[in-house]
Amino acid sequence: MALFFAWMAGLIFGLGLLVSGMTNPAKVLGFLDVAGAWDPSLAFVMVGAIAVAAVSFQVSRTRTRSLLGLPINLPTARHIDQRLVIGSMLFGTGWGLAGICPGPALVLMGSGILKGAVFVMAMLAGMGLFERLERQKRPDSPGPISEKKAS
């Protein structure tokens, strides 16, 4: 049952991305081009999405378990640090270069667009690189530490 709802959530989310125009990189770049022929449409995506999501988060805050009895995992991190800012800067640069963020990338791939699939592969490579760097930093992980000392 939980898997069905997760699948359904992804499906509706993806349909929303398609309907909204978020999956059209040319339109996303038109939104980010405030100094050019600006297309502010995508601001309305945020308004619509937040209007619905805000209610559900308000409800979820009053509960300890989801409607399926699963634990509710709300983020607990509150600190604003260098990682957050630098990571978001890197993301913003990549987003501004191609007009594609992670959700739309997966939908573009699902649309059978080769460039979408290539972007997803590069994105996964980037995420894999992050995991590698993180593992090298963590002192309790076994293998990569000796690798770090050796290099």
């Binding site: 990571g87 978001s88 800067m89 890197l90 993301f91 913003g92 640069t93 990549g94 987003w95 270069l97 191609a98 594609i100 963020c101 992670p102 990338a105 290539v118 972007f119 997803v120 592969m121 590069a122 994105m123 996964l124 490579a125 980037g126 995420m127 894999g128 690189l129 992050f130």
Partner: peptide, 8 residues
């Protein structure tokens, strides 16, 4: 761009 989005 994909790598930047992934890492970032």
């Amino acid at each position: 761009a994909g790598i930047l989005v992934g890492v970032g």
